[in-house]
Design a binder for these strands. Structure first.
Lengths: 258, 258
DNA sequence: CGGGATATTTGACCCAAGGCAAAGCGGCAG
DNA sequence: CTGCCGCTTTGCCTTGGGTCAAATATCCCG
């Protein structure tokens, strides 16, 4: 590897332009912000892209930090959190592969972003990306779609935070993860399923507006009642997905990811 | 008024194209989805716009209804709410003048929208608007900006719902209303202020994820402690805005509206 | 395989917010 | 002026979830 292709910055690994993976091979090619781009447009993006990776548990940016790039999660899971000055923490975003990090036109991070598993980001320097976006309606259009979807998800999340019981919150969270698992394998959720929780109990608590003790108690309660089975700390088996959805408080299916 | 210029539909009043107000006179001209449009673009929007108005308390659309238009709030206040099938209700959007209602490309309402005061909407039929948006980057761009702002607001709201105490929620809500009042008059919030709450206690409860009794109790507590004074049911006097912000749990200023 | 750090579970107790019920308080129609 | 209706306040009691503390699991690494 040449001298400049790899640099340690802020305990993350950065690869140079034209590094690693061609866009045409990219696992998030048709779901990320680049989804609608073809030919020339894609070429332009490819020219300015670079990869960064972060180890599990590492911060990506802190609220208020200057942020000179935006990017897409290629693999892994990252979280966005906000805190009150006395330390109370609320997760406000869960970034999965293809999700977008950073806001075009804003040069400071509004939230803490943390890698909860090993994360690979496909990054673009902010200025070139902003310019490109202004000239490329396909990018702006895809970003609008994605932002509207995120807003819908945020509103579903607000209903959970404001009105669901602890048990319903846990059931809803597991159902969300199960739906994603299914959509990743291009299947409908249902029947028996197995999955891995991508978050610690504490992170789940921050997601759900609970304490980690309450999360643990309600997970145990769902296990005791036969709604879920556990395999180690993170593994969950659902004997019957529909049973879990019944516990989530949502009507029918709780809004599919379309 | 000619025969077709006024129709009663679903207990709302609809005016024909070219009705009422010219865009150049419009109070939300530079804040709404049309903000970046000039000349030709504005002309196109003007050609397809029409106004609808709703009385206080009236529904605008119900979740799941077909929605053949999108539009901007010209005056008044509307809310978006979601409900669990047992009736628990959470507000997920508070639409103020210049805010946008409806999602381009989606023909069914995802939420209940209700007018909480008399509301005037500047509407566009969905299809022509979608077409126009595809051809007019200025509209798509403005809508992206607005959606990103809404997402930020939703995330602030999630922090409130998940982690703030009832007292902090009430203080935060009043602070939000106070900041808006100030920004409407192009002033900085601070010192002594007077304002009107645009919501009933029940709607405040739905906004904050509380019961109406708890809202009432905490409003009374803030009054007892001298943080606020009341004038009738809706009127509030803040002897010192900073004192209210102290009670809201936010650090410094809780994110200004930029 | 053993040791130690970290994550998780569980128990005992408490309190903030919810539920229920009964008064107040306006505002408006007659 | 009066009576009614809808909104709001307040009291009393209950309870879901938080807090504090201790006991397990689990995992990683040598």
């Amino acid at each position: 590897m040449r001298q400049q292709t790899l640099t340690q910055i802020n305990s993350c690994t950065t690869s140079a332009p034209h590094g690693d993976v061609s866009c045409s091979e990219c696992p998030i090619r048709y779901r990320a912000v680049c989804a609608h781009c073809e030919g020339d447009e894609l070429q332009r993006l490819e020219e300015i892209k670079f990869y960064r990776s972060y180890e599990a548990g590492q911060p990506i940016v802190w609220e208020g930090d200057r942020m000179d790039f935006v990017g897409s999660v290629v693999s892994g899971v990252a979280t966005l959190t906000q805190t009150l000055e006395d330390g109370r923490t609320q997760m406000v975003g869960l970034l999965l592969p293809s999700d977008f990090l950073g806001r075009p036109g804003r040069d400071r991070a509004a939230y803490n972003a943390t890698a909860t598993t090993r994360v690979v980001l496909c990054c673009f320097r902010r200025r070139p990306f902003d310019d490109l976006m202004r000239k490329t309606p396909h990018i702006a259009h895809r970003l609008l779609e994605m932002t509207l979807d995120e807003l819908d998800a945020a509103r579903e999340w607000m209903l959970l935070l404001g009105r669901k019981t602890a048990r319903e919150k846990i059931a809803s969270f597991i159902a969300i993860i199960a739906r994603r698992e299914a959509s990743l394998h291009k299947r409908q959720p249902g029947g028996r399923m197995e999955l891995e929780l991508p978050l610690t109990r504490e992170a789940m608590a921050d997601y759900l507006g609970l304490t980690l003790e309450t999360v643990s108690r309600q997970v145990s309660a769902l296990k005791r009642d036969g709604v879920i089975q556990l395999q180690g700390k993170r593994g969950v088996i659902l004997p019957d997905f529909a049973r879990l959805v019944d516990e989530s408080g949502d009507d029918s299916d709780g809004g599919c990811l379309s």
